[in-house]
Computed example of a mutant assay.
Amino acid sequence: MSTEATNEWNTDAIPSLRQPEAELPEIVSAEQFLDQPQEMPAELVQGMIHQSTLTMFSGGSKSFKTFTLMDLGLSVSHGVQWWGKDVVLGRVLYLNFEISAPFFQNRLLVLSDAKSVTRPLRNFDLWNLRGHAADIKLLMPKIIERCRGEGYAMIIFDPIYKLMNGRNENAAGEMAEFLDPLETLAEQTGAAVIYSHHFAKGLASSKEQLDRASGSGVFARHADGIITITPHEEENAFVVEATLRNLRAPAPFVMRWGYPLMKLADELDPKRLKSKVGAKAKYTVAAVVSCLTDGMTTGEWQAAAIKQEGFAASTFAKLKNQAIAEDCVEARGRTWFRKPKVHVFNPMTGESKLREAAPHEQKIA
């Protein structure tokens, strides 16, 4: 072989192969591997988050991501339920890159009161880094140094874009390089690493769940868990969907925002995502009346309205009262009946009015 040909395959000329050698694990046979019992990491949040894994929370602007992550941190650090799910008690570190200290303090006080978590707060450490954000490659060694040996079960980054340092979030190579240090942190500390990211512009419900986060598809592939918070058609309600690498994903469910917490809204249909930017659900008296079968109790009527139209309980109550005020229904004891209406046309004036149907007209009505 000629010298020129030899030089073509000179591995020293390939930059990626001239990097310092990393210590790699040994290659083992499948049987050797099976003979080495592996300890499963703790399931910090029932059915959703394991220790030593990466989880991304993604949502649109004003989807209360910081409140959600603070709630998560308080729940794990005090062993109380989060979003109706059991948690394993563990020490939490919250890296706050966005909210100024006075406002973060206020949120922490309000959230702990709302969750009935009494002071002194335990197992919840805070690192206020607003104004100190830097490239993740520069900051991560300092984070690992501070966290090593501290026994953190969960480390939360809020928000992750503060560490991009000018990187193009649409460039797959740049984002893979950007996210890798988070994996290193999880491996070296044994903590669940949680980070928040924003949705891309546009209507989130028009995209598949994994495609809603802004930037490269690497965001959808890198984390072990992708949890999205997408607007429901009902105001201040959000559909939660999860894609999980190591657990069976829970069925989508709906949370309703009520300052300062998200609370389960089991009565809302998670399929009813907000379908138009700026649009609010339009529910009518006619819709709630159409769900009534004569002789239903209030509870039966409400259940039918929720199932057929996706009403929230509060929306049903409001429209039921409107239906009563407009004389569309009447109560007979503990049951409800429609009051049929007919249109009456006046040929002299050309006007059409709605009036209650006479007994002989009710079948027609």
Rank of each mutant, 00 (worst) to 15 (best):
I160T: 03
A192G: 09
E21N: 13
F97I: 11
A331H: 14
K142F: 12
V28Q: 06
W9A: 09
N10S: 07
I49P: 00
G90E: 04
P15V: 01
V45T: 04
I160F: 02
P260F: 07
P250T: 08
G258C: 11
H132Y: 15
A204L: 11
A114I: 06
E23D: 15
F33D: 10
P252Y: 09
A323Q: 09
M140T: 10
M296P: 03
R355C: 11
P250D: 05
D86M: 03
A265K: 01
S29V: 03
G59P: 03
E356D: 11
D12R: 09
T284F: 03
M48R: 12
P141G: 05
P15D: 01
N321D: 15
A171E: 10
R91E: 08
F316K: 01
A133L: 09
Q322I: 11
K137I: 12
T230K: 06
P231I: 13
S290E: 12
T66L: 00
F311W: 10
T55L: 05
E145I: 05
G79A: 04
A171L: 06
E351N: 06
S61T: 15
T66I: 03
M56A: 05
S116W: 12
K85S: 08
I226G: 00
A153C: 05
A153F: 04
S29N: 02
V110T: 10
A242P: 00
S216M: 03
Y283W: 15
T3H: 12
P250F: 04
F157V: 02
A223I: 01
E169V: 12
F157I: 01
P37D: 08
A114L: 04
L138R: 15
T349D: 02
A265M: 03
V193F: 02
T349A: 01
E300P: 01
N246Q: 12
E267M: 02
S206L: 10
K307M: 09
I136Y: 05
A101L: 15
Q308R: 08
V289F: 07
A237M: 10
T189C: 00
E4V: 09
E241P: 02
K65H: 11
T55A: 07
T284V: 02
T298Q: 13
G295D: 13
A42F: 07
W257P: 00
D86I: 02
C328N: 15
S2N: 14
D113S: 06
K62N: 15
H343L: 15
P41A: 02
S52M: 09
L34V: 14
P347M: 13
P25L: 06
D327C: 03
C147H: 00
I156K: 00
A223R: 00
L273Q: 14
A286S: 12
K276Y: 13
A303K: 08
R18C: 06
P37R: 05
D12I: 04
A237V: 10
V254H: 01
L244E: 08
L244D: 07
K274P: 06
E169H: 10
G215M: 06
Q308G: 10
I160K: 00
E356Q: 11
N106G: 14
